[in-house]
Design a protein around this nucleic acid. Structure first.
Lengths: 336, 336
DNA sequence: CTGAAAGCGCTAACAG
DNA sequence: CTGTTAGCGCTTTCAG
């Protein structure tokens, strides 16, 4: 529909279309008055540059691909928002794909984006398998992961300092007088979870507590998983006064179970989450939690990606951002 | 990086590159064995078709643009997820932009997407002004709005039947014995809100109740707006036993205020929301609400857009989907 | 059935 | 300063 091209403008202006191109690209090799005249004409004729044609010759699209498990997930949608806004400010558009928590699909959409000639890809991997599974693909295009902070990860990534987060959470509960603190919902196959667990264990060691961990057999750290796991746990004696939960969703599931078992939060049980998803701040939930600075992570990911696009041969790098404890209403002081 | 092209394959295969193209496009004008041989070779050489080049000659990108106020909004992120998944199944990729609740930006990103040569655009407009503001742009590309159900809207759109929703909510509260039902949080400038209000008023009329409306002076139907408005309201006597809230976010704000005023939900006040955002289902919130069938709306929007892409000269059409009442725990029966 | 060639809209040498 | 020209990788007539 947008049918007016450079050539059309050139014809009307009575110049070659290279000249029009120069006027638009802000090249210095053109007369000031000619440029003005042409720019005005473009405006009048309703000319819109064709980004596809430009990409063709420039061999870059100024498009970033984003792959997330599900955009419909508070943590990911917040990240996506910030990535889109910042990327656009940097002159890039976002092409978004859901991997739907499926490693095969993740590979499929990655290839799709490659075919689209995206300049780079930001990826929130489905799981640890993703690294291996995508190895041959990530080699073909600049890629930044938002995920785990593993020293030896052979990829460029940005991550929150998971250890530091749970360490702070544990310390905080200790300072409130808690001595029987459970680590709730660890998934043993997740590196993120392993790191979070380590932070807790380190804190316990330092504070002279014996760490106790309730592992989760569920594949995802969903609310349902938290609910089921907690229900089971609450069937027994409530031996702990506080829990460090591996994620906010899990913590919300615990709240549900607690409600059904007649355990008040925080009076009967103190809870700290991880992520600070937007849910956590809702008044009826009001969960004390570890915040991942999403905007900062988003911007860092874009910066790193653009850097890698500019210098494709640079070695992998990573950024670890510090989390912070957000105090809300799910913890209370205890004195024994 | 992905440097192997049709030509490269052709050279190795010892055929012209037109032949390779035909093999890939599934053309019938090619020998079965040649095709097989070439396809195998493509595989071996790691050839990936260049979608940009194809777009260039095909004059279509198979890209859909999506403009939403903020991806980070539970309602929109759910829609986005479904749109992306369904569009991809139909052979399209999604380019997403935030309009950040800003009409100017909305126009800007629309133009940007036009320049990207997207085949069509799905838009969740910032507000009613959007229709006028974007008129000259929507004329240039197939566009589907997800928004208001106005009979006379000069655009193709999909919407939920807002009237029916609030009508059902009011009827339901009535059936529970409520006779003093407040309509909470109407924004007079929003068409959606006007329609929702109408549904409530119609129900009142039919049930012999006198409608009472608390208008919201706030620009957005956020939680904060609900909280403030409700706080003010609760300063006075609580003259109503139930509220139909113009949105879930508003209802959650009311919950917060109610909590602070020591009013129990649902014992002291029954609440119905609108939208059924994912928050609403969280156990601590457990809000009875009117569900907008997001997946259905998403698929309808994509279908309508593709239809319009195929037949650009078709007149505008619209789809109104029925909402449904989701019963949860924020309403109770009263007998006077 | 296959090859040759034109051209999509634009940028970037290279000449003038 | 401006015009000419050669592609970018692919699809699609049009000839063989």
């Amino acid at each position: 529909m947008s049918m007016v091209t450079l050539k059309d403008v050139a014809k009307v202006a009575g110049v070659s279309y290279a000249t029009v191109s120069r006027a638009l690209s802000g090249s210095s090799e053109i007369g000031e008055e000619t440029r003005r005249r042409i720019l005005k004409l473009c405006e009048e004729m309703g000319y819109t540059p064709n980004a596809v044609a430009r990409s063709m010759v420039m061999k870059r699209t100024n498009i970033i691909g984003l792959i997330v498990a599900s955009i419909d997930n508070p943590f990911m949608s917040e990240l996506t928002t910030h990535i889109e806004i910042y990327a656009r400010r940097c002159g890039y558009n976002l092409m978004v794909c859901n991997s739907s928590y499926d490693t095969e699909l993740e590979k499929e959409v990655f290839s799709l984006l490659l075919g689209r000639q995206v300049d780079g890809i930001i990826l929130l991997p489905v799981g640890n398998e993703s690294y291996d599974s995508l190895k041959s693909l990530t080699a073909q295009v600049p890629t930044v992961f938002i995920s785990e902070n593993m020293q030896d990860l052979p990829e460029t990534y940005v991550a929150v300092d998971n250890r530091q987060g749970t360490f702070a959470a544990t310390e905080y509960l200790y300072s409130l007088g808690h001595r029987k603190i459970l680590y709730f919902g660890c998934r043993s196959h997740s590196v993120t979870h392993r790191l979070r667990l380590e932070g807790y264990e380190q804190a316990c060691k330092q504070l002279g507590l014996v760490p106790e961990v309730l592992y989760s057999p569920y594949a995802r750290s969903s609310q349902e998983a938290g609910y089921r796991l907690a229900s089971e746990y609450m069937q027994g004696d409530l031996r702990h006064t506080a829990m460090v939960c591996a994620s906010d969703s899990l913590a919300i599931g615990v709240m549900q179970a607690a409600y059904e078992f007649g355990i008040a939060i925080p009076d009967g049980l103190s809870l700290v989450g991880f992520d600070n998803i937007s849910f956590a701040g809702l008044p009826p939930i009001n969960l004390t939690t570890i915040d991942q600075p999403k905007q900062r992570m988003a911007n860092a990911a874009v910066d790193m990606l653009l850097e890698q696009i500019k210098h494709p041969e640079m070695p992998n790098s990573n950024v670890i951002v510090p989390p912070s404890l957000v105090l809300r209403g799910s913890c209370r002081e205890v004195r024994e």
